Amino acid sequence: MPLTESRWIWTILIGLALWIASPFAVPLLAGFALALVSHPIHQLLVRRGLPIILSALVIGLMWAMVFVLPAMIVLQSVLPVVARFQSSSIPVDRILDVLKQLPVLGITVSNHADVVMDWLNQHPINKMISEVEPLAGHIAGHTLMLIVHTALALIVAVLLLIHGEAIAERVRPHLFELVGIPTMMRLEQVLVSSVRAVVLGMIALVLWEGVLGALMFWLLGLPAGMVFAIALALSSLIPGGSGIVLALAAVAAYTGQHIAYAVIILSVGHIITLSGDYLIKPAVTGAKSHAPFLIVLLSILGGVEVMGLIGLIAGPVIVLMLYGMASEPAEVMSKEVS
Rank of each mutant, 00 (worst) to 15 (best):
A204R: 01
A204F: 07
V206F: 13
V206T: 12
L207G: 05
L207R: 05
L207V: 14
L207P: 09
W208L: 05
W208F: 12
E209L: 07
E209W: 04
V211W: 08
V211D: 08
V211S: 13
V211M: 09
L212E: 09
G213M: 05
G213Q: 07
G213V: 07
G213S: 08
A214P: 05
A214Q: 06
A214V: 05
L215K: 07
F217W: 06
F217Y: 15
F217H: 01
W218I: 11
W218D: 12
L219G: 05
L219N: 00
L219A: 15
L219R: 01
L220N: 01
L220C: 08
L220V: 06
L222G: 00
P223L: 07
P223K: 03
P223S: 02
A224C: 03
G225T: 04
M226E: 01
M226S: 07
V227R: 03
F228A: 09
I230W: 09
L232M: 12
L234H: 06
S235F: 10
L237P: 06
L237C: 12
I238V: 14
I238F: 14
I238T: 10
P239I: 15
G240C: 12
G240W: 07
G241A: 09
G241D: 10
S242Y: 08
S242E: 11
S242Q: 12
S242C: 13
G243A: 14
G243P: 05
G243F: 10
I244Y: 08
I244A: 13
I244S: 12
V245T: 11
V245A: 15
V245L: 12
L246D: 00
A247S: 14
A249R: 02
A249G: 15
A250M: 10
A250C: 13
A250T: 09
V251E: 12
V251L: 15
V251P: 06
A252C: 14
A253H: 07
A253G: 05
Y254Q: 01
T255Y: 03
T255R: 06
G256I: 01
Q257Y: 15
Q257L: 13
Q257R: 10
H258L: 14
I259K: 04
A260N: 08
A260Q: 09
A260G: 13
A260L: 10
A260E: 13
V263D: 09
I264K: 03
I264T: 07
I265A: 11
I265E: 04
L266T: 12
S267P: 10
S267N: 09
V268P: 08
V268L: 15
G269P: 08
G269Y: 00
G269F: 02
H270W: 10
H270Y: 11
I271V: 14
I272Y: 01
I272Q: 02
T273E: 09
S275Q: 04
S275T: 15
G276E: 03
Y278E: 04
Y278F: 13
Y278L: 13
Y278N: 13
Y278Q: 11
L279R: 01
I280Q: 01
I280H: 01
K281W: 03
K281A: 08
K281T: 07
P282W: 03
V284K: 02
V284P: 01
V284R: 00
V284Q: 00
